[in-house]
Amino acid sequence: MENTSHEHTLSYKGLSFILFLLLVLTGITVAISRVDLGIFRIWAALAIASLKAAFVLLFFMHIIQAGKRVTITFITTILILAMFIGFTFFDIAYR
């Protein structure tokens, strides 16, 4: 997992494919926002956004190739942020 592990990154072709997927997902999220999903509206939007972000992280930012250390700490950071947001709702949701 040291400095030489760059072989696993994508070629131009692969990167183009990811770009294509990201653009399609953008289209989907815009289209879906036209449908009234009620309270799922925000969750659907966030789910697609997370998927897009995951693509960027995995294939543009090469988070896996950066090593286990980065993957673990990244997930921890996201979890902590999620807890900060979630725990705030112990107050807001029950006020």
């Binding site: 725990f87 112990f90 107050d91 807001i92 949701a93 029950y94 006020r95």
Partner: peptide, 14 residues
């Protein structure tokens, strides 16, 4: 923030 006007649930959890 226990006396700041936060919800009781939050007081309990925290």
């Amino acid at each position: 923030m226990f006396v700041s006007g936060m919800s009781d649930v939050a007081v309990l959890v925290f």
